[in-house]
């Protein structure tokens, strides 16, 4: 019987091997998707549908989150300043925080749940019911038919959704300032413009684009590599959401380090 150290080392080895195998599978799928990008006739006609499903249908949840985030940001800013800082800085804090951080990150995390889970569950079900094999037998490249339109749609639409969320969050903060903090519109706008730089919007868009790519690519990977029936689909869906959320937070720090 192996001693505890040997068992621990064996478990560590297995985990490392599994992780490397997973990276290899992800790399192979990325290569297949890149190659499939040339098959525009297949994915081109599916792109609009995916843009609607991934982008347009995500707008309500993104705006819901942004609205309440904007309200809370305005109230917490006012509470924190407590007369020591001029109240128009509420506009500064709401604008900066929504655009630079909470707009993209909260939207990204919410869509990791909505979009990432949806993609992993849909493709996972297709995998375990042999629908992906059926595509192959009908001379379709599954990567061109399933992965490329979703990844492109996510990469294009996340920034649109995030811009809307940024805007709605700021508007919610402005309305909160007007009715709950007795601020004027001029004061809020003054604060909003005070440290605003056009780069802030670019920064938000870069983050949103990378989050869109991440959420859809991770969802596709876990969906495509699903094994084991309904239980496997559930496992893939959970993993897709967890991994995409973790990568979003890592990317969030990465972009802050690299670009700020």
């Amino acid at each position: 019987m192996a001693n505890p150290i040997t068992r621990a080392l064996a478990a560590l080895g297995r985990n490392v091997v599994n992780a490397m195998a997973g990276l290899g599978r992800f790399g192979a799928l990325a290569v297949a998707a890149t190659r499939a990008g040339r098959d525009v006739t297949t994915w081109g006609r599916l792109l609009a549908v995916q843009m609607a499903r991934i982008g347009v249908e995500s707008v309500p949840i993104a705006l819901f989150i942004a609205t309440f985030t904007g309200i809370v940001l305005a109230l917490q800013a006012s509470y924190t300043f407590t007369g020591a800082v001029p109240l128009y800085f509420v506009g500064t804090l709401v604008g900066k925080t929504m655009i630079l951080e909470l707009g993209p990150v909260l939207t990204g995390l919410a869509l990791a749940g909505r979009v990432g889970a949806n993609i992993a569950a849909e493709l996972g079900t297709m995998r375990v019911t042999e629908q992906i094999d059926a595509l192959e037998t009908l001379a379709y490249d599954p990567a061109a038919y399933l992965i490329v339109p979703r990844v492109i749609a996510g990469t294009l639409m996340f920034p649109v959704v995030v811009v809307l969320a940024d805007g709605v969050g700021i508007v919610a903060g402005w309305i909160t300032s007007l009715y709950l903090l007795d601020m004027s519109t001029e004061e809020f706008i003054r604060g909003l413009k005070l440290f605003f730089a056009p780069f802030d919007v670019r920064f938000s868009l870069i983050k949103a684009t990378s989050f869109g790519l991440t959420v859809t690519a991770v969802g596709c990977y876990y969906g495509f590599t699903t094994i084991g029936g309904a239980e496997g689909v559930g496992r893939s869906t959970t993993r897709a959401v967890v991994v995409a959320s973790m990568v979003i937070l890592v990317l969030d720090a990465f972009w802050a380090i690299v670009l700020l």
Binding site: E130, D133, A134
Partner: peptide, 28 residues
């Protein structure tokens, strides 16, 4: 893919695309 166009495959559980109608499945 050229070879596959000459080979039809009938799956054990049919593997029909469940988001499509029967006509769309057959036309794929």
């Amino acid at each position: 893919y050229e070879v596959r166009r000459n080979v039809g495959y009938v799956f054990q559980f049919a593997a029909l695309f469940d988001s499509m109608t029967v006509g769309e499945n057959v036309g794929m």
